[in-house]
């Protein structure tokens, strides 16, 4: 029981620190709201995916808050339901990219020798290959409706820069006294990394995870828009791409169909980017004292 109470007060304390930065806290609230709505919506709403020809491209009304699309389906409901997949891909791609970058970067720095040589060369190669074109080519390998596959290729093209930064950070951190002391005690490499070095980079790692998520959303929506990944599920990216293809930009009422996913994606990214400021303060006490 006391364990749960500690966790609760820890969370409250974190929230208090995060709320000090107003913009950052707003970002946190936006992000959490969108996350919550996107996760819960599929439980409560079911979308009629059948076309209703009499309701094509209606403007906003009491019945359809953001109007209807080219098949007469409710746009607002599509927005509520369309977040799950985008968030899933963004999070998975961000997590994978961060794990690869941090893992390889810190291993290369700690082990040195041929591991370092190979890992650094690989990272430099990944940076050199033009990212977006490479993503386009890799997208050709994805099978039908595979959000996880999409996340994997997005992570695969974007870990190089993080790996090099982490490597140089670890190279400097491992010379610190406390790491040298732990090493002198004969503690194994994984202990040095997981207990001594990586916790010191946590603020950087977390903020880079969030930035990676926004990059993943960019990559994903772009690929769907170009029509190179076969994803049929309804999501914000598919909405944007369909709206483009159906010429929704050319009408006043139909423009709602293309504006809705754009502003939703922008709002979510805005939330993520600003949430980063609060996260930085939470994990980097030096920033807090500076205020």
């Amino acid at each position: 029981m006391s364990y749960i109470r500690d966790l609760g007060s820890g969370l409250l304390g974190s929230l208090r620190i995060m709320s000090r930065n107003k913009v950052g806290f707003a970002g946190l609230i936006i992000t959490m709201t969108i996350l919550l709505v996107s996760l819960l919506a599929p439980q409560f709403i079911d979308l009629k995916m059948t076309a209703d020809i009499e309701k094509i491209y209606q403007g906003p009304s009491a019945e359809h808050w953001l109007g209807t699309d080219y098949q007469g389906r409710d746009i607002f409901k599509q927005l509520l339901l369309g977040g799950t997949e985008v968030i899933y891909v963004a999070f998975l791609a961000g997590l994978l990219g961060t794990v690869i970058g941090v893992g390889l970067g810190s291993l290369a720095a700690v082990l040195g020798g041929w591991v370092d040589t190979i890992a650094t060369a690989a990272a430099e190669l990944v940076i050199t290959i033009p990212q977006y074109p490479l993503l386009l080519v890799l997208a050709g390998f994805i099978r039908l409706n595979s959000p996880a596959g999409l996340a994997v290729i997005i992570a695969a093209v974007g870990w190089g820069g993080l790996m090099l930064t982490i490597r140089s950070q670890v190279l400097s951190l491992k010379e610190r006294d406390y790491v040298q002391a732990a090493r002198a005690l004969g503690l194994p490499v994984w202990h040095l990394l997981l207990k001594e070095i990586i916790p010191n980079m946590m603020s950087y790692i977390l903020t880079s995870l969030v930035m990676r998520m926004t990059n993943a959303i960019y990559g994903m929506v772009g690929l769907i828009f170009l029509g190179v990944v076969p994803i049929a599920q309804n999501n914000w990216g598919v909405m944007y791409s369909l709206a483009n293809r159906q010429g929704a930009i050319f009408g006043v009422n139909s423009a709602w169909y293309i504006l809705a996913p754009i502003f939703t994606i922008a709002l979510f990214q805005f939330g993520l980017i600003n949430m980063n400021r609060s996260l930085e303060e939470l994990f980097n006490p030096r920033l807090r004292r500076g205020e």
Binding site: T214, I217, Y218, V221, G222, F225, Y240, N244, I249, F250, G251, V252, A255, I258, L259, I262, I265, A266, L267, Q269, F270, I273, N274
Partner: peptide, 22 residues
């Protein structure tokens, strides 16, 4: 911070929708 939130090709679409069409 607003401009980094919107992907550039969506900014392009917004320009077409507002400045071009509407």
């Amino acid at each position: 911070s607003i401009m980094t939130a919107i992907p550039d090709f969506m900014v392009a679409t917004l320009i077409i929708v507002y400045f071009g069409v509407q």
